[in-house]
């Protein structure tokens, strides 16, 4: 059967956004990353309209995680609790395009670290690696409002991607990200109407639309992935239809979500499930690859085997 030629053309496109600032741009990054720019659905139409290839941001935590399964601890066992060595390992050994510092440690329930510690981690990682950074808060609104503005200031001029801001808590971080020249992640709880609203709210504060990346929340394989998938798909179609409030590139948090899945980490599983060493990375890679097909631009990931599989996939598709 002949493959039909898909020749739809659209009036809009996904915004192109560059992360990281090299010396010429007032920062210290040795590389920058550009995502977005698609003028068609994923894999639809001419290669010229495909936009920039998606990238992987590897997670580095500001504290030593105490709840990671063994299969995930294994590749990092010599660097957990040492964000500098951890970030270097991700960049030098695993080929991370970006490093995402996840400030779990500032959360009141997970260590309640202060801003001083978070600022130090940020500065140390900035010195240790040359890739652009994603700076991601703990999810506790009060603590994030105390700490993340200081983290933002510590990385001023580096054009990091900071977040996340929500409909109920966006003012403090939006203002400081604007002042410090960063890009911003707007966060909605798997709700496309709120996703649009939060973009309107931050743009009302004068934050430029072309410096926003959206996070729709992520569901892993078996845990609501189809919701994230369909929302991202709808976001892409809105962007192509010319809706400027939905035209931003998309970030997904696959690493955290995939490794929360019982199937990814269950040790004494039925024989047919395969070994736990393989299962987790496969769960993570499968989730990532599915969401790439819905139009994700930046994927947060954890296990190096999964990262390698997804990089290989991207390499083959975006030749």
């Amino acid at each position: 059967m002949p493959v039909p030629e898909v020749a739809d053309s659209f009036s809009g496109s996904v915004t192109k956004i560059t992360l990281g600032a090299a010396k010429a741009g007032g920062g210290t990054r040795t590389s920058t990353i550009t995502v977005g720019g698609s003028r068609n659905v994923v894999y639809g139409g001419a290669p010229d309209n495909a936009g920039e290839r998606p990238v992987i941001a590897m997670d580095v935590l500001d504290i030593c995680p105490d709840d990671w399964p063994d299969a995930l601890v294994e590749p990092y066992k010599d660097v957990l609790g040492n964000p500098v060595a951890w970030a270097k390992k991700c960049v030098n050994e695993f080929g991370a395009d970006l490093i995402c510092i996840k400030f779990d440690g500032i959360h009141p329930d997970k260590g309640d670290k202060d801003a001083e510690q978070a600022v130090k981690v940020t500065q140390d990682v900035l010195k240790a690696v040359g890739v652009p950074l994603v700076l991601w808060g703990s999810g506790n609104a009060d603590k994030d409002n105390q700490v993340m503005p200081k983290v933002s200031q510590a990385a001023k001029g580096e054009n990091c991607l900071v977040g996340t801001v929500t409909q109920d808590n966006y003012k403090a971080l939006t203002a400081i990200a604007l002042a410090d020249g960063h890009c911003l992640i707007t966060h909605a709880p798997l709700d496309i109407n709120i996703a649009k609203q939060i973009n309107i709210l931050v743009s009302d504060m004068g934050f430029p639309l072309e410096k926003i990346v959206t996070f729709q929340a992520t569901g892993a394989l078996g845990y609501g992935m189809e919701y994230a998938y369909s929302i991202q798909e709808r976001q892409r179609l809105a962007a192509l239809g010319g809706d400027k409030m939905m035209a931003m590139p998309v970030i997904c948090d696959v690493g955290y979500e995939a490794w929360r899945a019982k199937e990814a980490k269950l040790v004494d599983a039925p024989a047919g499930w395969g070994t736990v060493q393989d299962r987790g990375p496969m769960w993570e890679a499968t989730t990532a690859i599915c969401l790439l097909q819905a139009g994700a631009n930046i994927i947060r990931m954890r296990h190096p085997t999964a990262v390698a599989a997804v990089k290989n996939f991207i390499q083959q598709i975006w030749q």
């Binding site: 009036s11 496309i192 109407n193 709120i194 649009k196 609203q197 309107i200 709210l201 709808r234 809105a238 239809g241 010319g242 809706d243 400027k244 409030m245 939905m246």
Partner: peptide, 19 residues
């Protein structure tokens, strides 16, 4: 369903769709 609903849908209509 040609525009995604948001609470500010009236306000953004003109600006969101400028070519």
């Amino acid at each position: 369903n040609r525009q995604i609903y948001s609470d500010s849908f009236l306000k953004v209509y003109a600006t969101a769709n400028k070519k």
